[in-house]
Design a binder for these strands. Structure first.
Lengths: 226, 226
DNA sequence: AGCAGATGTTGACCGAAATCAACGGCCTTC
DNA sequence: GAAGGCCGTTGATTTCGGTCAACATCTGCT
């Protein structure tokens, strides 16, 4: 099943509320996609806009020689597949098993124009998206490897962390290379930096896909300093 | 005169047409701002959305220690000042003398909601913006210094280049540090890379603020390779 | 006109992160 | 359960671009 084009990074606000999307045209369909499958490719006709319900997707662009930049990880509440024209402008794949709500774009290509409320919500979502992307700009352009990794962990902690005693734990469903291509680093540097954070007692790594933050304030400090 | 929050990079399409914006509320006012002045700062109340008419602005974010990332250069036709909430999320300053059209946001804070057409246009503009930003992501995260500078020049060439004989010339109103902070490099690297391009016969530099491209196809090739 | 500060260029050197390489663990597949 | 491939970690080495520094040029100011 091949679907949409994603546009989100870490978005704290579920701007698109359930009832708003439910009111749009024929009720949107929910689909499941298993881990490691593409939803759509750059250049595909952009028929759908997707709302993440469960799981994580990644959106990316590839250069001619294979270099890859991950644009965003789409988490529940995020919207993927917005496009200003008829085509998707990045690839999108599932990172793990995913459940998503599918909105079909109408013929006129400005999606949802018959529903001004949903259009306004989408506009606010897009503006929010732009804001998130701007934060990511300064990360990619001006932060050190340690700052990048700490910022990434801090963002995930804020979004999906579960508090347990004095720790905040969360899963990292994506592999090291995905994180590397998101932060503009090599996967070796991701690994080394995580090891350093563990050695400094700031995080624990119970297994490869889970992080427990032992000192949240120090992590946040590293996200801005060093 | 202090005004808006900008959101654009290099945008080929003047999506916001004159009559659409003119139909919005009380007719928008045109203002002039001279070179080197701020339009607004991060955190300011986002009262206005601006349409660039003439000149160039830069939008930026600053880290605690002074590191700066330029998010976009706003050229005529671009929109600056979109925000998902009541505040601007970046600084904006004029690079040279600027003329711009000012749209006041209404009280409800979702700008222009009474004008569904303009909302749809803005949505398409925002989606286009997101697309441009995605292109910039792969530039910041994965391209070499030469690729970055060549991409920057190629984008400017396509947008504001004037064909003269076999050459395409254009002004670069911003200083080297601005370009550096846009591309995530140091100003010395910008200078060195421009010199290399000149030595290779790909560009001429008649003066510090003007570029003539002698071999456009080689420039475009460098933007993707090397 | 003359001065001061900003801007641009170039060289020397340094360092953070990439690259290259080796290896261990885990998962899939037959 | 053997084989092969991915993934993650760690070490050795390289390299690109940053930093520091010197100097030239330009601009604005009085």
């Amino acid at each position: 099943m091949y679907v949409t084009s994603p546009v989100s990074i870490f978005n704290n606000s579920n701007i698109i509320s359930t009832q708003v999307s439910a009111s749009n045209e024929s009720q949107p369909q929910i689909i499941n996609v298993s881990a490691g499958h593409p939803l759509f490719f750059e250049g595909d006709e952009a028929e759908f806009v997707y709302e993440m319900v469960e799981g994580v997707v990644r959106t990316s662009k590839i250069l001619f020689d294979g270099r890859r930049q991950i644009l965003s990880f789409g988490y529940p509440g995020d919207v993927v597949g917005l496009s200003h024209d008829r085509f998707y402008h990045c690839d999108c794949e599932t990172v793990c098993d995913v459940k998503l709500r599918v909105h079909r774009k109408n013929a006129s290509n400005t999606c949802f124009e018959r529903d001004p409320n949903f259009c306004n919500e989408l506009l606010r979502y897009a503006a929010c998206e732009v804001n998130n992307m701007q934060e990511h700009f300064i990360m990619l352009g001006r932060k050190s490897a340690m700052e990048k990794v700490a910022s990434f962990l801090a963002a995930l902690m804020g979004r999906v962390g579960e508090k347990k005693d004095s720790r905040t734990c969360f899963d990292i469903p994506m592999c090291r290379s995905d994180i590397a291509d998101f932060l503009g680093l090599s996967h070796e540097t991701i690994s080394r930096t995580l090891t350093r954070l563990r050695q400094n007692g700031i995080i624990d790594l119970p297994n490869k896909h889970r992080v427990c933050v032992r000192r949240p304030s120090e992590l946040k400090a590293l996200a801005e300093r060093e």
